[in-house]
């Protein structure tokens, strides 16, 4: 900036190029995967199947749930924590949406609000256990994962609760089925729109707010942050609330797309969310990372999944490929210029 001298500027300039390469590795990765996807896309009657509008629709829709969760996960990881419970909370929220509307005859708005509150409260309790009582986030949320699954099983009676639409008793309001639809001339799936809104809000929030400075500071050096007057405990608790709330939102979207809330929903999703965050360049040690990266990471995983699926790659091989991509992305982190 204005303070730099000319000499250091050229040096810094060179370093900037390398640094920005790394800062946006997920974006470059995304562009690369996108190009690869286009090049290697299977063709049918000369048409690139990957670029088929339906297919792109499918990709962004499939990414939305993981993406929404991954945004929340980014906050937790930025403070140096982890949240393993988001997949189970998604299941709990999906069950909650279904049961509240189908069995308890709640309206859409009421059901959504209640489920979101459940997610936030769940995050709050985990945050308190982790930040106030000093139990490691990994352990707290591992336990939270079990608790959320257990609650979901109890609430649903151990079975998926199908959502039928209509005005009668035992039916969910038709509005809720919008979650499975598209808007803007049938081009944008509603879940993708929700993901986009969540991501943009999170990106702007993380860039401009004082709160986000505290988030980064805690991840960078928690002790220093505390001594600098950062309300560490409060920030950590809020961060877990965000993750819980967004996982619940993803659960609502999940229920809307599949017309069912099952206690087994979202099984293993937490790992996909973490993968998206890590591929997006956020450090698991905390203090470094962006939601932009996470969005790119989630899209990258989605495009990869789609491409492998379109090619009919053996499902077992697909797992190998995805594992490799995560390792490569994490390996690139190690090349990041250190200070």
């Amino acid at each position: 900036m204005s303070l730099s001298t000319q000499d250091t500027e050229t040096k810094a300039g060179r370093r900037d190029v390398v640094a920005s390469l790394f800062r946006f590795q997920s974006l470059f990765g995304l562009v690369a995967v996108f190009l690869v996807a286009v090049i290697f896309s299977p063709r049918h009657d000369g048409e690139l199947l990957f670029l088929n509008s339906d297919n792109l629709f499918n990709v962004v829709r499939a990414v939305s749930e993981i993406g929404i969760m991954a945004v929340g996960m980014t906050f937790v990881i930025l403070v140096g924590g982890i949240d393993l419970s988001v997949g189970a909370v998604l299941g709990l929220a999906a069950v909650g949406s279904a049961v509240l509307m189908v069995e308890s005859d709640f309206g859409v708005a009421a059901a959504v609000v209640i489920v979101l509150v459940i997610g936030v409260v769940f995050g709050f309790l985990q945050g308190v256990a982790s930040a106030v009582f000093g139990i490691q986030a990994f352990i707290v949320t591992l336990a939270g994962m079990q608790v959320a699954r257990g609650l979901a099983r109890m609430w649903s009676g151990g079975q998926g609760v199908p959502i039928a639409y209509g005005d009668g008793p035992g039916q969910a309001p038709v509005t809720f089925s919008l979650l499975g639809e598209r808007t803007f001339n049938g081009l944008v799936p509603i879940p993708a729109l929700i993901f986009a809104v969540v991501a943009v809000v999170a990106i702007v929030f993380l860039r401009t707010s004082a709160f986000s400075r505290h988030v980064y500071a805690i991840g960078g050096n928690e002790k220093a942050a505390r001594l600098s007057g950062v309300p560490v405990t409060r920030v950590k608790v809020i961060v877990f609330c965000i993750a819980g709330g967004l996982a619940a939102l993803a659960g609502i979207v999940h229920a809307g797309q599949l017309n069912q809330g099952s206690p087994n929903d979202g099984f293993g999703y937490e790992l996909d969310a973490i993968a998206a965050v890590v591929i997006g360049g956020t450090s698991l040690m905390g203090g470094h990372g962006t939601v932009t990266g996470t969005v790119a990471g989630a899209l990258l995983l989605g495009v990869l999944n789609n491409l492998l699926g379109l090619h009919g790659v053996d499902p077992n091989v697909q797992l190998l490929v995805k594992g490799l991509v995560i390792v490569v992305a994490a390996g690139l982190q190690r090349l990041r210029p250190t200070t």
């Binding site: 199947l49 499918n58 499939a62 797309q257 087994n264």
Partner: peptide
């Protein structure tokens, strides 16, 4: 295609089939 017990994955699998 193998959905690995995940409803959402099976939806995507079918969608991929449709695209193809």
């Amino acid at each position: 295609a193998d959905a690995q017990q995940d409803n959402a994955k099976q939806v995507s699998d079918v969608e991929n089939f449709l695209t193809r």
